[in-house]
């Protein structure tokens, strides 16, 4: 997708979310209230099939466009499992299976449940050597310990379709997609948390001036800004690599993004709460609606440790002499 079109799409989604996603809506989610109108609008915009090629009735977006979109979604606390459904449809399409309508659940190995699994019309499994589409078995409803959002156990039931795993997706397709989704959403949520903190620091007054005037507070927020910028770059780079080389070929960048965004989530959420102090510790203030997601997404689809180990194991096997050549060769094709 051209930069210009992407900007238009992202702005459109950003506006839609800005208009719809109120703290009340977010609180409703924790009561299990499904934001049906929002979901319908997103389906109407074709977002659920955005990663599906035009020929199969989708919008033909790349993983880079998708990652940018998920970042916007994360900025608004990702009130619907759009990213998961979108990725599942994209994976099906890449394997040659026409995605069915409705919410698709992406089964990620090792995950105890699926966000809003109860509402999934179908489940998609993508690991090893096959991509499969299933009717879901009955849901065992649950909710995230920290997010308090619907997070349901739902195992794949009868198989509807199956196809061999395409090489570009690779045997870890679902895990990689899950990591990319959560890295991108964290990158967006981090922006929101930083913005809220800067706003708070420029309005809350103590000792006769705004607390943002105190250098200690400035230094904390500047540090947070560095982390937020790093997270954004890591997520974008992961999306770009996946667009260029497929999920399988982007393992390093996706893993890196999950690590960098996860580390940033820990640091920035801590700084945000320090700056908001008692007000940010209340249920009433909206900060926790975002920081609780950061803490949740950090651990979703593999915490930093898991992905760091993958990168590290590969680098150790390659050895010191290949460390720099490997790092620079990734986007330079033939080099190495």
């Amino acid at each position: 997708m051209s930069d210009e079109l992407r900007t238009i799409l992202l702005e459109q989604v950003d506006r839609l979310l800005a208009d719809t996603v109120t703290p009340a809506l977010l609180r409703g989610l924790e009561q299990g209230i499904w934001p049906g109108a929002l979901w319908a609008e997103m389906e109407g915009l074709g977002l659920t099939l955005a990663l599906v090629p035009d020929a199969m009735g989708g919008a033909g977006l790349g993983w880079d466009d998708a990652a940018a979109l998920w970042q916007v979604l994360g900025r608004h606390a990702a009130p619907v499992p759009l990213a998961e459904s979108m990725a599942a449809a994209g994976i099906l399409a890449a394997a040659g299976i026409t995605p069915p309508a409705g919410l698709l659940g992406l089964v990620v190995p090792g995950e105890a449940g699926l966000p809003w699994g109860r509402r999934a019309g179908h489940l998609v499994a993508a690991g090893g050597d096959s991509v499969t589409l299933h009717h879901p078995a009955a849901a065992q409803e649950g909710r995230g310990a920290v997010s308090r959002l619907p997070f349901d156990r739902r195992t794949p039931g009868p198989q509807v379709a199956a196809a061999p795993m395409p090489a570009t997706l690779g045997p870890d397709a679902a895990s990689l997609a899950g990591a990319l989704i959560h890295a991108a959403q964290m990158a967006g949520a981090l922006e929101a948390v930083l913005d809220m903190s800067v706003d708070y620091a420029t309005t809350r007054r103590q000792f006769g001036r705004t607390i943002g005037g105190f250098q200690a507070v400035q230094q904390l927020l500047a540090q947070a800004a560095g982390e937020v910028a790093a997270a954004g770059v890591a997520a974008a780079q992961a999306g770009r690599s996946a667009a260029r080389r497929g999920l399988a070929g982007a393992e390093f960048e996706i893993a890196s993004a999950k690590v960098v965004c996860g580390e940033a989530a820990g640091k920035v959420a801590a700084i945000a709460h320090q700056v908001h102090a008692a007000m940010g510790f209340t249920d009433e203030h909206a900060l926790h609606l975002h920081t609780r997601r950061l803490w949740t997404w950090r651990d979703a689809c593999g915490a930093e440790r898991v992905w760091a180990r993958r990168i590290g194991t590969a680098a150790l096997a390659r050895g010191g002499a290949m460390l720099w050549p490997d790092l620079t060769a990734r986007d330079e094709g033939a080099a190495a």
């Binding site: 890591a234 780079q237 390093f252 590290g312 050895g319 460390l323 790092l327």
Partner: peptide, 28 residues
């Protein structure tokens, strides 16, 4: 990091730690 890497193969904690370093290096 380059000089130390080969020597770290024998260290069980190295994979995660080196992975974290490289995730940042690529991003920076």
């Amino acid at each position: 990091l380059t000089a130390a890497l080969d020597d770290l193969r024998a260290e069980p904690a190295a994979a995660e730690a080196v992975g974290r370093l490289l995730a940042r290096a690529g991003t920076l």
